[in-house]
């Protein structure tokens, strides 16, 4: 039976060799892509610092921050969306409001600076005033969430990363 079909053995060896080469190459590419994603995820850093505080109206204060996103690897396309952030007193006893920048997606480079702005008004402004009156320098806590979207070969992977920063503002009128 076997001698009647001499093509069987070379075809089997050929197909097996092709399968081995293709599968090993595909696995190597997949592992490389996975490793790149893990490096990108581990190498992402978010820092926030206050750039400006203005009193824009008698009962309104405008805060401006810059969120700096640093990515150690640029091999994987990623974008960022700052979902929302809260302002508290440094000891988290006083909540000064919840703010959001909407659905703005920012493509990430090795260093990306994202400007943020919030206007504190109404009861939150009054709480801020009381905090400022209580001490020479008021320490506030910025607590936010950034949604980082990585473009994988098959889909988009979304990871929520906390953004936390403490900053001080001088006493009102100084």
């Amino acid at each position: 039976m076997r001698s009647e079909r001499p093509w069987r053995y070379p075809l089997g060896i050929g197909l097996l060799t092709i399968s081995l080469v293709v599968s090993v190459i595909l696995l190597a590419l997949t592992e490389q892509s996975y490793q790149t994603f893990r490096e990108a995820l581990q190498g992402i850093q978010l820092t926030v610092h206050l750039t400006d505080v203005d009193q824009v109206a008698p009962q309104e204060a405008r805060f401006r921050w810059t969120v700096t996103v640093t990515m150690t690897t640029q091999k994987i396309a990623a974008s960022l969306e700052l979902l929302d952030w809260h302002i508290y007193s440094a000891d988290q006893s006083v909540h000064l409001g919840y703010y959001t920048s909407g659905d703005v997606q920012i493509p990430l480079k090795s260093v990306t600076e994202v400007p943020l702005e919030a206007i504190i008004r109404g009861s939150h402004f009054e709480k801020l005033q009381r905090l400022q009156e209580a001490s020479e320098e008021t320490a506030l806590l910025f607590q936010g969430v950034a949604l980082v979207m990585f473009q994988l070969p098959k889909r988009e992977e979304r990871k929520k990363i906390p953004v936390v920063g403490v900053f001080t503002i001088p006493k009102e009128g100084e």
Binding site: L16, V24, L27, L29, E31, S33, Y34, P153, K154
Partner: peptide, 18 residues
């Protein structure tokens, strides 16, 4: 060859497979 191919569809690596 079979193990490498099978790894491509695992939960861990599926999203990264070309």
């Amino acid at each position: 060859a079979a193990g490498a191919s099978s790894a491509l569809q695992t939960h861990e690596l599926f999203d990264f497979s070309p």
